[in-house]
Nucleic acid binder design. Structure first.
Length: 433
RNA sequence: GGAGGAGUGCGAGAGCGGCCGAAUCGGACGGUCUCGAAAACCGUUGUGUCUACGGGCACCGUGGGUUCAAAUCCCACCUCCUCCGCCA
């Protein structure tokens, strides 16, 4: 949620920033007008309210003095003002709802450094990395044995059983087996271990209440993307960002606690409603996948360093796994609703011959914190909204695909990246059994 | 799931329906004292919102209701504690 006070203070700056995301100034003017109306309606109601309180006090005094006639008269008067106040209050509340609806409809202001652009074509590629690059190796030329899609490799090695997944839960719910399942587990464990030095590991609930989904902004806007368990008013989380952001909802954090860094491995559920038939083969797009999230509540001053740390950790894992990837600086028009700045990491997967998004590192400034009301108390100051930063490190189903394609050998086996071997009893290869 | 009990400020804890936004104790912060510290004493100490900057209004688990007036009465819900049942 954007800052109404800032909008009142510098409407033109807000308009200019949001124009970069395609928000019309008319939409913002509507909010400003509703806000002005809301405040005057509220004041009108408050004046009446103050009168009722004052009259009531006098009723009490008159009654105590035994002056029943005056007391009754004042009570009648107060009742009248009270009725009036009730009506004024209803008006103010209705306008308040309008203001809320309008403001919730607005995305975050893009950071000035975010590049211009309307959609993903405006994103700027910052860099690429591939194994051996530092030693002067050129961009990898992948051999034919690597140009096999992971669903074929998975079936060949007996480690991915998409048919069984379909039988159990429908399409786009993968089922891993044997070493495939072990690989999923190893990746999650590896990442949690790598982040344990600075991030507290959390194992949150997999479901969240409507209220929680609202506070992170995933509802009501993206309702169609969420799995719901209506009977219990629960939603399956689309990312650990939901529980992590809401964990300290409504709290005033101690400045000494910041930056408060958290990490969590959770399943993530996405209905992918608008994507029927698009890039949906194998593990390219699935309804459920495991992801390790890195998250930080921090002061505005700490935010850039927190952002860099999340990005560095996500990249570090990709390098450890020997994968080729690139870093994209998302343009203003392609930013997620809540984000001010986002870098995406895309891994190159030779079997499907595509770049696959495996991480999205975002800086939300105080946009999320305002809605979730998470604050900290600066030394000697009054409570101030924190900044939030998060990023995936990493989304494992697509990494799984990239690993088996990238590290496939001529004999059909898959070489296990060094850091994962401990999870396979020291074995160096996945092979047909 | 059943039966009881409880939810008030940073913590503990009071609060005949009417100067209660809330006693008291503790904590924290500031000061006096001290070479310094402890002790003692004095003072400060919720959040939000609007403002004609005088103040106003809201918030005592949440949401409704009664009343001239609700932390205080009524209803529903949520959470926690105790006991019983069930269970990985």
């Amino acid at each position: 949620m954007i800052d109404l006070a800032q909008l009142r203070r510098e409407p033109d700056d807000v308009k200019a920033a949001l124009a970069r995301r395609g928000i019309s100034s008319a939409q913002i003017d509507a909010l400003i007008a509703a806000d002005v109306e809301h405040r005057s309606a509220m004041q009108a109601a408050e004046v009446l309210r103050a009168q009722v309180k004052d009259l009531s006090r006098q009723v009490g005094l008159a009654r105590k003095a035994g002056d029943t006639a005056t007391a009754d008269q004042l009570a009648a008067q107060s009742r009248e003002v009270g009725d009036e106040e009730r009506r004024a209050n209803e008006v103010a509340e209705a306008i308040g709802h309008t203001v809320r609806d309008l403001i919730l409809d607005l995305p975050n202001l893009p950071a000035p450094e975010a590049p211009d652009g309307e959609d993903e074509t405006g994103n700027v590629e910052l860099r690429q990395w591939w194994p051996g690059m530092e030693d002067g190796a050129p961009f990898p030329t992948f051999a034919d044995h690597q140009k096999v899609p992971h669903w074929d490799i998975g079936a060949d090695l007996g480690i991915l059983d998409l048919e069984s997944g379909v039988k159990l839960a429908g399409s786009m719910f993968p089922l891993f087996r044997g070493d495939g399942s072990r690989l999923v587990r190893a990746l999650g464990a590896l990442a949690l271990d790598r982040h344990a030095d600075a991030y507290e590991e959390i194992r949150p609930p997999t479901f969240a209440l409507t209220e929680t989904m609202m506070s992170t902004g995933h509802l009501p806007k993206n309702e169609i993307e969420m799995y719901a368990i209506e009977r219990d008013d629960l939603w399956a989380i689309p990312t650990a960002e939901v529980p992590l952001t809401s964990m300290r909802r409504g709290d005033i954090l101690d400045e000494a606690e910041l930056p408060l860094r958290l990490t969590a491995l959770t399943p993530c559920f996405r209905r992918e409603a608008g994507a029927a038939g698009r890039d949906t083969r194998g593990l390219l797009r699935v309804h459920e996948f495991d992801k390790v999230e890195l998250f930080a509540y921090c002061t505005p001053e700490q935010a850039p360093a927190c952002f860099d740390d999340v990005l560095a950790r996500a990249e570090g894992l990709l390098r450890e796994l020997g994968l080729t990837y690139r870093v994209l600086d998302l343009c203003a028009g392609d930013l997620g609703t809540s984000s001010a700045r986002t870098f995406d990491l895309e891994v190159f997967s030779p079997g499907v011959d595509r770049w696959l998004e495996v991480s999205s590192v975002s800086w939300f400034r105080d946009f999320q914190a305002r809605r979730a009301n998470v604050r900290y108390r600066p030394a000697g100051g009054s409570p101030t909204l924190v900044h939030t930063v998060n990023g995936s490190a990493l989304a494992w189903s697509r990494i799984w695909a990239a690993i088996v394609e990238t590290h496939r050998q001529a004999d059909g086996s898959v070489s296990i990246p060094e850091p994962l071997r401990a999870f396979f009893g020291g074995r160096a290869h996945l092979q047909r059994r």
